[in-house]
């Protein structure tokens, strides 16, 4: 069908444009000597990656998690804790503390994955509102733990004096750090695309549409959802580790429920279930924050109004403006 392929190519072009945007911004800023905008582009890429992780659970699986800040923050704290031990030269409960991003990411992803297994195993027994609230509660648990634990900054947060390294690259400079973040984003997007197109992705989307029917076909929705939830949390944790290195600071606010809410906002602003949706949402969000935040201290008031308008009037988010599709979910 020629029409179908036209829509497909338009969607692809829109996705590629959205993905190329942060890279273009960073390259332009780098040549113009505006290093601030390189860092802004890195922030877009990292928040986009975090929301892409959530999109796997939320968009494909229909799992409205209000607890993804837990994974984001776990990633952030792993980066912060490893960096602080690496500076001191002390070991980390028997593990070596190496201030190397690849190592940090591995630890972050494993830690978040373990927490996601526990969180998912309990919360996925329920659905609907109960699921939303239980995921929220699990994130709050970690939030209070981070405040209570005196060794790593407690309520004040933990500064990272020197960014973790990446195979000898000078990560303290904006451009190399942006490229690392952008690479991680591309990895996350590729993983999302592969999973979405796979048999696993088909089963996950079937579980969202009709879990009973899927079960009658011999596929247990619980296990599919749990695997998706864990992978989703791991991707968000990877973004969290990068976010801590970006800010050279990690604090309990990364774990707060406002963070979870913002991640949902990013996904919905951009387009639920769409490949480049979360990144489009993150781009819009960061630019709004930058532009409105420059004009008024109360920019979140207007963000709230804009969000209400998106929910009440628009369906399908930014990506559906760029490349409309028939159904609500892509």
């Amino acid at each position: 069908m020629p029409e179908r392929s036209f829509v497909f190519s338009r969607g692809l072009v829109a996705s590629l444009t959205v993905i190329a945007l942060p890279l273009a911004l960073a390259l332009w800023a780098s040549f113009a000597g505006e290093t601030f905008y390189v860092t802004l582009a890195a922030r877009i890429a990292i928040l986009g990656l975090a929301a892409t992780g959530l999109n796997l659970a939320l968009g494909l699986g229909g799992l409205v998690s209000l607890g993804h800040a837990a994974f984001f923050g776990i990633g952030g704290y792993v980066a912060g804790i490893v960096a602080s031990h690496a500076v001191e030269g002390s070991s980390l409960v028997g593990l070596p503390a190496i201030g190397e991003m690849a190592y940090v990411w591995l630890l972050a992803v494993v830690a978040a994955g373990l927490y996601a297994v526990v969180m998912g195993a309990i919360s996925l027994r329920t659905s609907g509102v109960a699921f939303i609230m239980i995921t929220l509660a699990f994130a709050q648990m970690i939030f209070y733990l981070a405040i209570a634990w005196p060794g790593y900054g407690g309520e004040d947060g933990l500064p990272i004096t020197v960014r973790n390294g990446f195979f000898g690259l000078r990560t303290m400079r904006p451009m190399p750090f942006f490229l690392i973040s952008f690479g991680a984003l591309l990895f996350g997007l590729a993983l999302f695309a592969v999973l979405k197109a796979s048999r696993f992705g088909a089963a996950l989307q079937a579980a969202r549409q009709n879990g009973v029917r899927l079960a009658s076909l011999g596929v247990e929705p619980f296990r599919i959802r749990l695997v998706a939830f864990v992978i989703s949390g791991m991707i968000t944790a990877l973004a969290g580790a990068l976010y801590a290195d970006l800010n050279r600071f990690v604090s309990p606010s990364m774990l707060s429920w406002h963070m979870s809410g913002e991640l949902i906002v990013l996904v919905v602003l951009g387009g639920v279930g769409r490949l480049a949706g979360p990144l489009a949402g993150a781009t819009l969000y960061v630019l709004l924050e930058h532009v409105l935040g420059g004009m008024t201290e109360r920019w979140q008031f207007f963000l709230g109004l804009a969000l209400l308008a998106v929910v009440l009037l628009g369906r399908g988010g930014l990506m559906s403006l760029l490349a409309p599709k028939g159904g609500r979910h892509g």
Binding site: V64, V265, V272, G304, L305, L307, L308, V311
Partner: peptide
């Protein structure tokens, strides 16, 4: 529920900043 979460989250932002 997703729309409800999002809209009421937006209301929090509006109420708090207002």
């Amino acid at each position: 529920h997703l729309d409800q979460v999002l809209a009421t989250f937006a209301l929090i932002l509006i109420f708090s900043e207002g």
